[in-house]
Simulated scan of single mutants.
Amino acid sequence: MLKRGLIVVFALVAFTFSKVKAQQNENVVVVKDTLITLLQHVRANMGINPVESKPVAVPTKPTVRSAATRTTVRGFRVQIFAGSDRNSAFSEQARFRNMYKDIDTYINYDEPNYRVKVGDFRSRSEANNFMNLLRQQFKNVFVFSENVFVYQ
């Protein structure tokens, strides 16, 4: 059994060495099936996964909450506090509200910890940008995926 294991290990090492040697001496040729290109063009014409994607900035419209409908979607929030002290959780929430009056805050209690999370972000990149901004004022800041509120 040990002999067979050594043979397998030796074969793997030899195979890996020969591949590395081949990559150093030869050019890599990529062969692409023409059907892949055809499928990409068909999907692009249908509006699905276009071949050439260009970033488009969509301006966000300010939503008047009193006239909008609130719905729940899967999104992201930034956690600014996690701990077992209730008073500390509420003081961190108040401190955040003083700095950012237009961003909603949420306190969750999962025994034995309180968690203060802020914002209702649809994309992780928005949440990450806001998290990086908050790192200057709060410690242990993280992004979490959860159901968030959006106004339409």
Rank of each mutant, 00 (worst) to 15 (best):
M1S: 13
R4I: 05
G5C: 08
G5T: 01
G5H: 06
I7A: 15
V9L: 15
V9G: 11
F10G: 14
F10K: 14
L12P: 07
F15W: 08
T16I: 14
A22F: 05
N25H: 07
E26Q: 10
N27V: 12
V28Y: 08
V28P: 09
V28A: 14
V31S: 11
V31G: 01
D33M: 11
I36A: 06
L38M: 13
V42A: 09
R43T: 08
G47D: 07
I48F: 08
I48D: 05
P50H: 01
V51H: 02
V58I: 15
P62I: 12
P62Y: 10
S66N: 11
S66W: 00
A68T: 12
R70V: 15
R74Q: 15
G75F: 01
F76D: 07
R77V: 08
Q79A: 07
Q79R: 11
F81L: 01
G83C: 05
D85I: 10
S88L: 10
A94M: 04
Y100C: 08
D104R: 07
T105R: 05
N108H: 04
P112L: 02
N113E: 03
K117F: 02
D120V: 02
R122Q: 12
F130K: 00
N132S: 10
N132I: 01
L133E: 14
R135G: 04
Q136T: 08
F138N: 01
K139A: 07
K139S: 10
N140G: 09
V141P: 04
F144E: 11
N147Y: 12
Q152C: 03
Q152F: 10
